[in-house]
Design a protein around this nucleic acid. Sequence first.
DNA 1: ATTAATATTTAACCGGGGTTAAATATTAAT
DNA 2: ATTAATATTTAACCCCGGTTAAATATTAAT
Lengths: 229, 229
Amino acid sequence: MRTAAVEDYVKSIYKLQTETETVSTSALAERTGTTAAAVTKMLKHLAQLNLVSYTPYHGARLSPMGETIALEVIRHHRLLELYLAQAMGYPWEEVDAEAEKLEHVISEEFEESIARLLGFPEFDIHGDPIPSRDGQMPKTATETLEAQAVGTQVVVRRVSDADAALLRYVGECGLKPGVEVQILAREPFGGSLTLEIDGLERRVSPQAAQNVFVERCAAQSLGMKSAPQ
Amino acid sequence: MRTAAVEDYVKSIYKLQTETETVSTSALAERTGTTAAAVTKMLKHLAQLNLVSYTPYHGARLSPMGETIALEVIRHHRLLELYLAQAMGYPWEEVDAEAEKLEHVISEEFEESIARLLGFPEFDIHGDPIPSRDGQMPKTATETLEAQAVGTQVVVRRVSDADAALLRYVGECGLKPGVEVQILAREPFGGSLTLEIDGLERRVSPQAAQNVFVERCAAQSLGMKSAPQ
DNA sequence: ATTAATATTTAACCGGGGTTAAATATTAAT
DNA sequence: ATTAATATTTAACCCCGGTTAAATATTAAT
């Protein structure tokens, strides 16, 4: 049976798989907020359903079927996040929790409706890529704002939604996908960055900057518009 | 725990309570599509949670707490139905099934959002009353279209959503809440009714007419606009 | 008032998803 | 290579929501 729990595990495995070849029991337990024992049992169950290949003591990987389901659930989740923010006025740090519950119950029709209403978007409100209905995942930026050299001109592409409080802070700083940013200065030893956002000078913590992913503007990265101090 | 199952039972009891003083095990079993044994167990559980008063062999009634929960769930359901139809373009015979799943997972915030977007409506897409946040249920029409005398002028107020196929048919006849209808003729022995809807002559089955609830237009019910044949 | 029909409850079971505690593998360290 | 630390699995248990089959109440009928 494709229960909400099964979908959640599959989604978690999908995400952990991007970091490690094989997903360990403990990593899954931590991510799902359950115990290792519960994970072991579920992995056996998922293997039974042909959603993962599982070697006891050596972790699991999604099967093609498992991956398909993961992408469907992630598509639901991210479309919902965007819809909640765009159509219903949710603040972007709250959409994740609501989408987490809705993703398991909406029909294909509902998914299609909101996708249409949103104009078949490729990225959600945080800039996370929305898999297409046939499972294609749009490319997304991987360089952090924190890693940028002083003087660089970048566009924000994505903000990690892992921590709602941080997300809120980052949003208040004006660091949202699509926003252009110039790195004006960096305090040494892990200090904050000084940025120019929308013509205004802004200071952001390095932790925040580590959770903001950007794309460099080729044209501006060499010849800067206004020289940094 | 307030699970989806608990909410569904409470909602079912609420609806059955309007027809009979006390809700029997078998009536609930039929409505929830389960067995009498499952119902007995759940009734004990609900009594434990103080959501019903339950006398073995003599049925159950909602407690004040149970009624509150029932009204909350019904409010979710009907707001969702209206939202799905109005904002998302669902056909009105499909909204029930989708709302059935969503009603258990949306947050108070979600509820408030769609209520606001819909302009704090009092009736859903079928004309069913939406309980207010403090549990007030708007009054609704109880006379059926079928029961109306020839020559009567009425306004459709509500259409039973019990049968999706029938609902679809009724909708195609143009019998939607707010529509004005004049009863032109009635075939004897349970035959169909001839109506004037929107200036057009329409014939509807008696079964359909029994599922349409109307309000008589006081002004027109005596002096008719155009005489029936 | 007794019997028959019907409704309801109880008992034993199952699957899903979780827990803790104990047993067992694996990995790291000496 | 053996030991110690750590990760994983197994076992026994819990709750939830359902099932079927048997036992028991209630209601209807004679």
